[in-house]
């Protein structure tokens, strides 16, 4: 290759972008600190519970969306969350593991199942994938219900112990006897997950995932093994979702097959579309807004689902970019003329 001196300005810009990416770590840390202050202000157990539920749902929804963005119509998020919950509960209650080992192990087990299901099915059109993942989820549900030993049958598993206490000698003991302890655990899990997903999107992996979406034939022609990338995304996201499932089990002390029905995936799909799947922040917005709105109907699940699905239909028809596209849409109305100007440069390859 010829040695051409790179344009110094341009390189400066690139370095600046990389610096900014490094800084993003600070933003995540800042978010953690900021949300970490909430329990100091907010004493209500109820509000803390709403926030905790929001945190693990954000994990479910953002990992779900990442799989969607690899072009796969995933319909079995509930399967992997369920695997995480059951695996970790059984490891703790039957094998006597510590929660802190069981949770990552549950994530690995779910990732293993994702690889197992992913390799034969991810190469197919999204619809087949939807059928298989939904069927997989319901098969698991059937297994949980049918086998009382060790899954507890239709009634599920009771009296799940909370996470093992952590003691930093002379400083603090976190024994999960209070809501705030769970709050910090859920918050930490969420921030770590969001950071991993953020890096997956910003790094070279995100570049390749996008390239696969933009043109899979060309991606293959330059040597990209599309299957490996899709399986990687599927396994990592399923594993992270499963760890949140494990948290859920040890937080609520009780799981049953009903917790992991297809409705969970439907909710995640709704959060994703309503918030806007183009951007990563969209899903978070969707989850937060809808879960807050859903609190109004807490206890009336039919009305809640009615509202959610109605919301979904309205957004699909009138705001295809989701809630996150709303501010951009409003500012763009003014600059329509500029956009038209830009059209002129567009070249029709036909």
């Amino acid at each position: 290759m010829t040695r051409v001196r790179p344009d110094p300005d341009r390189q400066g810009k690139f370095l600046g972008e990389m610096k900014a990416q490094q800084k993003s770590r600070l933003y995540f840390l800042g978010l953690f600190v900021l949300l970490g202050l909430v329990p100091l202000v907010l004493r209500s157990e109820y509000y803390l519970h709403v926030l905790i539920a929001m945190f693990y749902h954000v994990i479910y929804a953002t990992t779900y969306r990442f799989i969607l963005r690899t072009g796969q119509f995933h319909f079995g998020a509930h399967a992997f969350v369920g695997i995480g919950a059951y695996a970790s509960v059984l490891l703790v209650m039957r094998a006597g593991w510590s929660f802190w080992l069981a949770m990552p192990a549950a994530g690995l087990i779910a990732a293993f199942f994702a690889v197992l299901i992913g390799y034969p099915t991810l190469r197919l059109k999204g619809i087949y994938f939807a059928i298989i993942t939904w069927g997989f989820g319901d098969t698991l549900r059937f297994i949980y219900m049918r086998f009382k030993e060790p899954f507890g049958g239709p009634l599920g598993i009771f009296a799940i112990p909370g996470p093992n206490p952590i003691t930093i000698p002379g400083l603090i003991t976190i024994d999960f006897s209070q809501k705030t302890h769970f709050y910090f655990l859920a918050l930490a899990l969420m921030i770590v997950t969001l950071y991993i997903l953020h890096r997956m999107e910003q790094s070279r992996f995100g570049l390749i995932f996008g390239a696969i979406r933009e043109g899979d034939r060309l991606a293959r022609a330059v040597g990209i093994n599309i299957m490996n990338y899709k399986v990687l995304a599927f396994a990592v996201c399923s594993g992270l979702g499963a760890m949140a499932g494990s948290f859920y089990a040890h937080y609520t002390y009780y799981i049953s097959p009903l917790d992991f029905s297809v409705l969970l995936t439907i909710y995640l799909a709704i959060y994703t579309v309503v918030g806007g799947q183009e951007r990563y922040a969209g899903v978070i917005v969707g989850t937060v807004v809808l879960m807050l709105a859903g609190e109004v109907f807490a206890g009336y699940s039919h009305y809640q689902l009615l509202m959610y699905s109605g919301f979904l239909i309205v957004i699909l028809l009138f705001l295809p970019g989701g809630l996150i596209s709303l501010p951009g849409l409003l500012t763009r109305v003014g600059s329509r003329a500029e956009e038209k100007e830009g059209e002129k440069f567009r070249n029709d390859p036909a």
Binding site: E214, G215, A221, V222, P349
Partner: peptide, 13 residues
């Protein structure tokens, strides 16, 4: 490595 008859790129990139 090949190129294509119809222009094939990653259009949005």
């Amino acid at each position: 490595v090949r190129t294509y008859q119809l222009v094939t790129l990653f259009p949005g990139y």
